[in-house]
Design a protein around this nucleic acid. Sequence first.
DNA 1: TAACGCTGTGTAATAATATAACATAATTAA
DNA 2: TTAATTATGTTATATTATTACACAGCGTTA
Lengths: 131, 131
Amino acid sequence: MQKQENLSKNQKIILDLIEKSSGPLKAYSILFNVKKQGIKAPLQVYRALDKLIEIGKIHKIESRNAFVACKNSNCQVSKATAFSICESCEDVTEVSNLKLSKYLSNFADKSGMKYNKYNLEFFGLCKNCKK
Amino acid sequence: MQKQENLSKNQKIILDLIEKSSGPLKAYSILFNVKKQGIKAPLQVYRALDKLIEIGKIHKIESRNAFVACKNSNCQVSKATAFSICESCEDVTEVSNLKLSKYLSNFADKSGMKYNKYNLEFFGLCKNCKK
DNA sequence: TAACGCTGTGTAATAATATAACATAATTAA
DNA sequence: TTAATTATGTTATATTATTACACAGCGTTA
Ligand SMILES: [Zn+2]
Ligand SMILES: [Zn+2]
Ligand SMILES: [Zn+2]
Ligand SMILES: [Zn+2]
């Protein structure tokens, strides 16, 4: 895994912001929040996001167009991601369940396709919201 | 399940187009293709898409912002979807595997979340592309 | 019939998300 | 030290999706 020390300036700024956030952040909200640190254009944000995704430091929540820090310590799983998303408060938690990831990583159907990556999003109501 | 006869004019036009397509369609490509049938504005397309998704006739491929017809006959599974996506040719196939859907529908982790829906996207190379 | 709720339509404007194109600097590899 | 690779900065633009408002059609029901 690439060390954080190897990240570029913009990548560090943006990873730092995402890691400190309590929930998923959207690209333009990230942009807004890093303007004071000299990042002025969407592309600067998207480029950093792309890199951070590539090295597994963050993940994109596809159904929300939002980005979260990886919560699996020393994550190797940018290619095998699962999240649970509360449809009421929009809280997102990264699911880390070894049985699930093994099951999905080994999944094969009759299509003859070779999978090298998956993304799973569960939806429902979190503990708080289902009260 | 709602029958196609109950669909509105715009909904029928758009479902028909998606069902006849060999792959996922994007919203503005749909718009372009139904202009001759009197559908002129993005919102008309998105409204029909929303309804068709709601009743399970189509699904959205979240990672691609594209829409496909449901291939599970008499589909009740708009709340439990799985797709395999070829990263080379962008071909998309709906995975229908009873074991998988049971496994995921019953999945529960320690988070205390009650899931009522999931979406799973597998990525890889299809038969043709991995040659 | 009239009032109402509900679903769908039409239209214009705009918001939100993401990328293309081009120029340059910094870092790494050969 | 040349070349290749990676990152940056900037402007413009493309793509995806929603807000807001006006109105039409249909079934319920008062
Ligand atoms: Zn992770
Ligand atoms: Zn919640
Ligand atoms: Zn389906
Ligand atoms: Zn392919």
